[in-house]
Amino acid sequence: MPKPVPTQQLISDLLEGDRLALARAISRVEDDAAEAARIVRAVFAHTGRAHLIGVTGAPGTGKSTLVSALVESYRASGVTVGVLAVDPTSPFSGGALLGDRVRMTGHSGDAGVFIRSMATRRGTGGLAKASADAMLLLDAAGFDRILVETVGAGQAEIEIASVADTVVVVEAPGLGDEVQAIKAGLLEIADVFAVNKADRKGAARTVAALEMMLETGGAAAQTIFHHGQRMETGAATSETEAGDGWSIPVLETVAVSGGGVDELRDALERHRAWLGESGARTAREGRRLDHMLQTLVQAEFLARMERTLSPALRRDLVERMQRRETDPYSAAADSMKKLSP
């Protein structure tokens, strides 16, 4: 095995736009928390330029195909694109089958495109823990737009709203009735709706249901709680800053043929312009960084807990609880005292 490239070298090559350095840096932030800190520290000053677009939706709605079509549309307009495609890690084996590239061929040989698949590993909410870091690296490497495709999301996988500037929720005809559309969660985080497979029966009904939901919808909660973590949604911005006027468009697309994809790209560019003019871009970036801060502090706490609360110590506490010498709350309070740095 050859010696691995030193991190400093990797960072400077990445900032020059070297693709292999970028790929290796993403692996290091995924694999090693200490390396992630080192690399992100070094590149952070070079980030903040790219427009971060999240693409989410239920499995089978055509997210990967739509992302690929969007890449093509962006490339035709001369803009460079980085793609992060997230697929789930098996909770049983720890392995993952990352298949989004199957739908993303056709960009071969184009230096303006970089596609990376990422397994969720221990991440929750439809993204990997390293997703936010990888987005920073793609940004630092100079890509103009970064498309992040989440895992096929159910109704509450809304992590993407706290890491993207713009969220596209992809729907497809025939997945549910109007009541599905007014349920909480995924639909509340959309800045743009794409009803994909719009050549299929029922597309008009899906569009109508979404439009009805948008017309009748009240403001989404500004602060939400997800996996015990405080999060602030993007959709709240469009509602609370409605004075600046972003009305959420519902667009029809047929990703396989490219139908409606340029219009979707236009809507994303309009949203990008709106974010800049209304000041929402700064607000969202602030929320994103606050989210990263909380996530990192939480991870550090967890690591500290694992270091301090040894299995032997926990066993001892459990036995004391079983003898009713102490109770779960007192045991937790005692444990907390041991956590001091």
């Binding site: 693709r19 292999l20 790929a23 290796r24 993403i26 692996s27 890690t89 392995g95 993952a96 089958l97 990352l98 298949g99 590239r101 199957v102 061929t105 071969s108 040989g109 970089f114 596609i115 990376r116 698949s117 397994a119």
Partner: peptide, 23 residues
């Protein structure tokens, strides 16, 4: 393992490019 599956009818260029981007 984390497996990146690329599908059929890949050229050597496409495979090498995917191998690089996916490290």
């Amino acid at each position: 393992f984390e497996v990146i599956y690329t599908g059929i009818r890949q050229t050597p260029q496409m495979i090498a490019e995917a191998a690089l981007q996916e490290d």
